[in-house]
Design a binder for these strands. Structure first.
Length: 455
RNA sequence: GAGGCUGUAGCUCAGUAGGUUAGAGCGUCAGUUUGUGGCACUGAAGGCCGUGGGUUCGAAACCCAUCAGCCUCCCCA
């Protein structure tokens, strides 16, 4: 038989039983916490209209959207139009004649689209969570895939800072349950805006944000070089440097930022937000929450508090992020719906947990009892016992072929099935069965009725 | 979009300075052992050495191209 070379598209993965179980463990943990905080599930299609997505993620983002080729382009009567349309695509422009749909790039924009479409029906504040795959035509590398899951929770229709506090608590709780030691970095976009006001004006906000975002990668000197090339003066850059050098405990950082940006109105607002978040108050302190003024988070829609979560003790990009946005649905014609949300990067969380060996043994749950196949009459008996076990929720299976013991034992071992049940001609005659534990080799003989009574 | 590394058995990899029939470990299958697994021993199957060209008497090895994977930058989860 000719051997056909098979492969997977770049940046995609198959998940075997073990991996699926471990992933489900993460999903379940996150889902449970979301539900505990009153979020409702939402699912949206894998694909959206291309125009829904285009222009929402910046120029870079647009390039990374997977576009879907329209069907029926090969129909003879459409040839001429398809060819002229394709010229547009070759020129770097999208054309609905060639592609009008695309795979979703994140969960936030489809969510905004959903809110805009169902504006009248939703009960506000609307709290939803969404756990679905998204696709990006990125170059894959460590911790980066072309198909990966996002777990988002957002609230729209409320300005309350209480929500930010709850989201921080959700992060803390989920990672505590997963056993990952994290630092939840928090900042306010308003402070960045205030910094921009002080140094070069509001129109420099983006440039400053981008430069700050690169700090931990390129270092302070290169950040200064970049800012200089943006036309900032020596004095302005000095201010930014003072901003970036703020350190110490959360309280100490607040004191330093007060000295630097306290005289601006925007700065005061930003500090208020942060103070509310870090103060214990009536909700208690959130563990691992750390103010990080160098946190900037790209440049898109965030306007208030921003979050980013990093795992300690392991080299990995952020495993979660989010923040407040004032007017996400404005993009779709429905204005004045403020929102705030966070996201978990499940694939990276998986990699972190794998690297730190944090998955509990319970994730291996599968078949509990393997019934040996030792003949037709014997397996008929086994089958009737199994049906009882199954009604009691015990996973079990019968080896489908009557083969030697050796083989059936090895099957159980490979699948890590903890017990085997042996019903041969001897046992059948006495209405008994032999139950053997594989790890300890202990085995007991008991009547079929006694066997069932255990469950 | 830019750069680096790697493609040899199902998997992880050896393969000496180009030289007969390309190796190991693990895994698979069979047997020792036709109702008691893991261990051990014996044996077997399994390779167009990523693909295409070139250099050479001779290429898995050297050169070029191409494809794929991994990694870094950019950006991000």
């Amino acid at each position: 038989m000719a051997k056909i070379k098979v492969s997977l598209p770049q940046g995609t993965r198959d998940f075997n039983a073990e991996v699926v179980r471990k992933r489900n463990y993460i999903f379940q943990t996150i889902r449970t916490v979301f539900e505990l905080y009153g979020f409702e599930p939402l699912e949206t299609p894998a694909m959206e209209n291309l125009e829904t997505l285009m222009g929402k993620y910046g120029d870079e983002g647009d390039k990374l959207i997977f576009k879907i080729l329209n069907n029926g382009l090969d129909l003879p009567e459409k040839h001429a139009k398809a060819q002229s349309d394709f010229e547009q695509v070759l020129a770097g422009k999208n054309n609905t004649g060639i592609t009008e749909r695309a795979l979703k790039y994140d969960l936030t924009i489809p969510f905004a689209r959903y809110v805009a479409m169902n504006h009248g029906q939703l009960t506000y504040p609307y709290k939803r969570y969404q756990i679905q795959p998204v696709w990006r035509a990125d170059r894959p590398q460590k911790g980066r895939y072309r198909e990966f899951y996002q777990c988002d929770a957002d609230v729209v229709g409320s300005q309350s800072l209480l929500l930010e506090k709850e989201f921080a608590a959700i992060y803390a709780r989920v990672f505590e349950q997963l056993g990952i030691d994290v630092v939840i970095k928090v900042n306010s976009r308003k402070l960045l805006a205030a910094l921009a006001e002080v140094c070069g004006g509001a129109d420099q906000l983006t440039a400053i944000t981008v430069a700050i975002d690169k700090l931990d990668k390129i270092g302070i000197d290169k950040v200064k070089t970049e800012l200089t090339s943006r036309g900032l003066t020596h004095e302005q850059i000095h201010q930014i440097e003072r901003y970036l050098q703020i350190n110490g405990s959360n309280e100490q950082k607040m004191e330093q930022i007060e000295a630097l940006l306290g005289h601006t109105e925007t700065g005061q607002k930003g500090m208020e937000e942060l103070r509310y978040l870090i103060n214990a108050g009536q909700f208690g302190t959130i563990p691992n929450l750390s103010i990080d003024f160098t946190l900037a988070r790209g440049l898109n829609y965030y306007t208030g508090i921003i979050f980013e979560v990093a795992a300690r003790n392991v080299q990995m990009g952020s495993i979660g992020g989010g923040g407040r946005y004032d007017d996400l649905t404005g993009l779709f014609g429905i204005s004045n719906i403020p929102g705030v949300g966070i996201s978990f990067g499940v694939d990276r969380i998986y990699d972190v947990m794998e690297e730190l060996n944090l998955f509990p043994a319970q994730t291996k749950n599968g078949t509990q009892y393997l019934f040996f196949n030792l003949g037709t009459a014997e397996s008929t008996k086994a089958f009737s016992l199994m049906q009882v076990l199954r009604t009691k929720g015990i996973a079990c299976e019968l080896y489908p072929d009557q083969v030697k013991f050796d083989k059936q034992f090895k099957y159980a071992e490979k699948k890590q099935i903890p017990h085997v049940v042996i019903i041969g001609s001897n046992e059948l005659e006495k209405d008994q069965c032999v139950v053997k534990k594989l790890d300890s080799s202990e085995q007991i003989v008991l009547s079929c009725d006694d066997f069932l009574l255990q469950f």
